[in-house]
Design a protein around this nucleic acid. Structure first.
Length: 272
DNA sequence: CACTCTCCCTGAAAGC
DNA sequence: TGCTTTCAGGGAGAGT
């Protein structure tokens, strides 16, 4: 599932299309989470990729014509590139053909992702970007900042971590992994987290996400295969999807919070 | 505004 | 075996 590390890895891998000129755009399915804008074909055709970046879980592909292509992978979205001889497979929804014969494909079985085109200088005004909190890997993220926002919250920390308005980039999988690493119970309410624990939490956020990027970076060698991005990560999960696994004197337990599964070790994650 | 819940979608896995 | 049901997840939007 694409969370911050997978998006970061994808953006890095996309460097192969940097400075490339788009020659042809094909929309196979316009109805994703939102409809792909009609004008996207005209804007993209003949433009050149000038920059690639990530904002939270959004992939931003800047063009040389002051427009930016915005891609969100939702939960099953993947981007893949091929050099030529592309043959469309099921769930390939959007395809960019480059003058160099390289091809970029957006593939998304569940269609939870979306694709948008906006003027680059209006990107920050888009509601999906505007509402985002500080990036999970921002060096400016401080415990004080988070403490001020959650010190009255009755919401459990697991759910707080998923709130993109507060901290952007963490999804359901890494939320469990981060809490396990910081030995904080997912059930702890925001208001009950002392600043020292928030500092610990932030350390774990950085540690886990950076580690995932590192592993993602090594698995991305196989970027052309669709499932390549996730393969190597799973073996690194300590608790996610590991219900019943014995860790020390504890056992991984699965609970459901706000309709999302949470995996944790009740004895280890006791906030001590 | 802040919070909770439902829904979108498909494929994999579990259930029968 | 094969059909049916359940579950997974990011985030918008509705409801409270």
């Amino acid at each position: 599932m694409p969370e911050l590390p997978e998006v970061e890895t994808t953006v890095k891998a996309l460097s192969v299309i940097l400075n490339q000129k788009i020659s042809y755009v094909k929309i196979h399915t316009s109805k994703l989470r939102f409809k792909i804008p009609n004008n996207i074909i005209n804007i993209l055709r003949n433009s050149k990729i000038s920059n690639l970046r990530r904002i939270a879980k959004f992939i931003i592909i800047d063009l040389d014509i002051d427009y930016s292509l915005v891609i969100h992978l939702g939960m099953s979205g993947r981007l893949k590139t091929v050099n030529k001889n592309y043959k469309r497979i099921k769930h390939d929804h959007f395809v960019l053909y480059f003058l160099s014969k390289k091809i970029l494909i957006y593939h998304d079985p569940r269609k939870f992702g979306f694709i948008d085109i906006v003027k680059t200088n209006e990107l920050q005004k888009q509601k999906y970007i505007m509402s985002l909190g500080i990036d999970a890997l921002s060096p400016n993220l401080t415990a004080q900042m988070i403490f001020e926002k959650i010190s009255k919250s009755e919401v459990p920390i697991k759910q707080i971590l998923l709130n993109q308005k507060l901290i952007a980039g963490i999804g359901n999988i890494y939320a469990s992994e981060i809490l396990f690493d910081s030995k904080i119970s997912p059930l702890t309410l925001g208001k009950d987290l002392e600043i020292s624990l928030i500092m610990k939490l932030i350390n774990s956020i950085r540690k886990i996400l950076k580690k995932a990027i590192k592993y993602g970076g090594s698995s991305i060698r196989d970027y052309r295969s669709i499932d390549g991005t996730l393969g190597n990560f799973q073996s690194n999960f300590k608790v996610y999807n590991k219900e019943g696994k014995i860790i020390g004197k504890d056992v991984v337990k699965k609970i459901v919070q706000y309709g999302r599964s949470t995996f944790y070790c009740p004895k280890i994650q006791n906030n001590k």
